[in-house]
Amino acid sequence: MKVKSIIPRDEAHWHELRAQHIGGSEVAALFGLSSFMTPFELWHIKKGNIEAPNLDDNERVFWGNVLEPAIAKGIAQLEGFQIRKVHRYLSSEDVPGMGASLDYQIINHQRGTAPFEIKAVDYLEHRDWPEENGVKTPPMKYALQVQSQIALLNSKWGCLGALVSGNTPEKFNFDRHNGVIAKLSGGIEDFWYSISTGKEPEPDFNKDYRTIEQLYGPDANSFEDRTGDDQLLGLCAAYVGAREDEKAASKSKEALRGKIIKRIGKKARVKVDQFTIARGAQFRIIEKAQSGEDGFESYELPSLPDTSKTFLNKPKDLGQIASIF
Rank of each mutant, 00 (worst) to 15 (best):
I7L: 14
R9P: 05
D10N: 15
A19D: 13
G23R: 06
S25M: 01
A29P: 04
L33V: 06
S34E: 01
M37P: 03
K47V: 00
N49H: 09
D57Y: 04
W63P: 01
G64L: 03
G64W: 03
V66P: 00
E68T: 08
P69D: 06
P69M: 10
A70R: 13
A72M: 03
A72W: 01
Q77I: 04
L78R: 03
E79M: 13
V86Q: 03
V86A: 08
S91R: 14
S91Y: 13
E93H: 08
D94A: 15
P96V: 05
P96M: 10
S101V: 01
I106L: 04
Q110R: 14
A114V: 00
Y123M: 03
H126P: 08
H126N: 08
D128V: 08
E131G: 05
E132V: 09
G134E: 07
P139T: 11
M140K: 01
L144D: 10
L144C: 06
I150G: 04
G158E: 04
L160F: 00
L163W: 03
V164I: 15
N167A: 08
R176K: 10
N178D: 11
V180I: 15
A182G: 08
L184H: 08
G186Q: 01
I188H: 11
E189W: 00
W192D: 03
W192L: 01
Y193K: 14
Y193T: 11
S194P: 02
I195W: 12
S196P: 00
K207A: 15
R210K: 14
I212N: 07
E213W: 07
Y216Q: 05
N221Q: 10
N221M: 11
E224V: 14
D225W: 15
D230P: 00
C236V: 14
A237I: 13
V240C: 07
D245C: 08
E246K: 09
K259M: 14
I260M: 15
I260F: 09
I261K: 11
A268L: 07
R269K: 14
V270E: 11
Q274F: 10
T276G: 00
I277W: 05
A281I: 09
A281Y: 05
I286N: 10
E293Y: 12
G295R: 06
Y299S: 06
L301S: 08
P305I: 14
N313H: 13
N313W: 07
K314D: 12
D317F: 03
I321Y: 01
F325S: 11
